[in-house]
C-alpha cells in the first residue's frame, strides 16, 4: 500500500488585509488549504476575490499576513527558487535573448557554464523554441513568450509552480496549445501546480482538483475532485459528465456572487 504524497504546501487560517486604505480591506479570511506533491490544482472564484493575492503570499512576495503558511515544513517568508511563478504577461527580460532568459536563474546559482548550456538547451527543446533561442522576446508572439516564461520557470526545477491566469490573454487556439504543453511538462517533471483561472473549462481540463474560493474576503468554499482520466483529450469538453461538473461549479459561483 502506498502512502499519500507528502504535503508540500500547507495554509492554515490565513488572513490578509490591505491596511494602507481606510477602512482596511479584508482580502483573505480564515483560508486553509493543502497542496500535496504532484498535485495539479486549479483555483477558481468570483473575480476580485483575492486569488492573485493568495498566490503572492504563497510566492513569498508579501509577508504581511496572519496565520500559518508553510512550504516543505518551513514558514514562507521570502521568494524561493523552489516556488516558480508564471504571470498573465510573460515578464521576460527584454534585454536578454531567449536562451539567456531561460538561463537567468541558473546563472545566478553560478552553475558550471556547460551545465547551464545543457539545461537551457533541454528546456528550449521541451517548449519547442530551440529555433528562436537567439531572438529577443519582443520579436516573438505572446504565445511564444509564454512558452519561454514556462521554460524559464521550469528550468529551476521548482517543487511548486504558481500560475496566475497564465493563458488568459492568449487567443483560443494558442491557449489550447499551451494547455497541452503544460500537461506534457507537468507529466514529465511533476511539479505541483497551483493554477489560478476564471475559465472553468480550463480548470476541468487541466487539474485533478479545483478549489473554489468565496467572494472577498476569500476562504475555501469547496474542494472538487476532477474525476476524468488522463491523458485528457479536448473532446472531453463535449461529454456529459464534463458539462455536468461545469454546470455545478458555475452554479456554485453564482450563489457565491449573491
Amino acid at each position: 500500500m502506498s502512502n499519500p504524497p507528502e504535503i508540500l504546501l500547507s495554509i492554515n487560517e490565513v488572513n490578509k488585509s490591505f491596511t494602507n486604505s481606510t477602512p482596511a480591506i479584508n482580502v483573505i479570511s480564515g483560508l486553509s488549504l493543502q497542496v500535496r506533491e504532484g498535485d495539479f490544482i486549479s483555483i477558481v472564484g468570483p473575480s476580485g476575490c483575492g486569488k492573485s493575492t493568495l498566490l503572492h503570499l504563497i510566492a513569498g512576495f508579501d509577508r504581511d499576513y496572519s496565520g500559518e503558511m508553510t512550504f516543505c515544513g518551513e514558514k514562507i517568508i521570502n521568494p524561493s527558487t523552489r516556488r516558480g511563478i508564471l504571470f498573465q504577461s510573460p515578464q521576460l527580460f527584454p534585454w536578454l535573448k531567449v536562451k539567456d532568459n531561460i538561463a537567468f536563474g541558473l546563472k545566478l546559482q553560478h552553475l558550471p557554464a556547460n551545465q547551464i548550456e545543457m539545461e537551457t538547451q533541454t528546456y528550449l527543446e521541451r517548449v519547442g523554441m530551440t529555433d528562436f533561442q537567439d531572438f529577443y522576446p519582443d520579436q516573438l508572439s505572446g504565445g511564444m513568450q509564454q512558452r519561454i516564461a514556462l521554460a524559464r520557470a521550469l528550468v529551476m526545477k521548482p517543487k511548486l509552480l504558481l500560475m496566475d491566469e497564465p493563458f488568459s490573454s492568449l487567443d483560443y487556439q494558442t491557449r489550447l496549445e499551451m494547455h497541452q504543453l503544460t500537461l506534457k511538462l507537468w507529466m514529465e517533471y511533476k511539479p505541483s501546480i497551483l493554477f489560478v483561472t476564471h475559465d472553468i473549462e480550463e480548470a476541468l481540463l487541466l487539474s485533478d482538483k479545483i478549489f473554489i474560493l468565496s467572494e472577498r474576503p476569500a476562504s475555501l468554499v469547496r474542494e472538487i475532485a476532477v474525476p476524468f482520466q488522463r491523458p485528457r483529450e479536448l473532446s472531453l469538453i463535449k461529454t456529459l459528465p464534463f458539462n455536468q461538473l461545469k454546470a455545478e461549479i458555475l452554479d456554485l459561483l453564482f450563489v457565491l456572487k449573491e
Binding site: 510566492a59 524561493s80 527558487t81 511563478i85 515578464q91 527580460f93 537567468f104 524559464r152 520557470a153
Partner: peptide, 23 residues
C-alpha cells in the same frame, strides 16, 4: 511583476540590482 519574476529565479540584493534593475 518583472522584479518578482526575477526574485523567484533567485535574484536578490546586488544581483537583482545589476542583472535586473540596472538593465
Amino acid at each position: 511583476k518583472l522584479i518578482q519574476a526575477a526574485r523567484v529565479l533567485g535574484a536578490k540584493g546586488w544581483a537583482l540590482f545589476f542583472h535586473v534593475i540596472l538593465p
